[in-house]
Amino acid sequence: MFLNEIIIAGFGGQGILSAGRLLAYAGMLEDKRVSFLPSYGPEMRGGTANCMVVISDEDIASPVLNSCSALIVMNSPSLEKFESWVKPGGIIISDSSMVQKKVKRSDIKVFEIPATQLANEFGNKTYSNIYLLGKLIKETGCVKPENFEKALYGILSEKRHYMIPEEMEVLKVGMEY
């Protein structure tokens, strides 16, 4: 069975929710069942933000997750909160330029990418989430890169479409990091 239960967590403004929407959109393009559930309310405004994405080839029971197969964290509190949620054999992808803490568990695979630093060096700090999504896509196969590209075209407003070749370049860096 093909089932990806993904949690993406960090600060508001890090592109947490857009990362989740892109995955769900790409999943839809592959005719998978998808759900996307964002955290909402005041915590979005500067506090922590997270979203839960399910991509499956069967009907999705609940969009509300209590555990996950993959976790992307973009700040330390998120790692603290969600580390224990990852199922054994699952993966954590951490933006190591933002997350100082180390993952304690040994029954999961951990990938550390200094995504924020890489994005800053690239010259566009809004790309940090894309590095991490690249690694997620590579490790889980939850969506195909070409569908991720289509999702970018589908979700981004037209005036931002010029960014997409760059974002795909960044995605590939993330995949190979």
Binding site: R21, A24, M28, R33, V34, S35, F36, L37, P38, Y40, I60, P63, V64
Partner: peptide, 10 residues
């Protein structure tokens, strides 16, 4: 409820 209102599905 808030889950249904906020979630995205196809």
């Amino acid at each position: 409820d808030g889950v249904l209102g906020q979630m995205m599905e196809v």
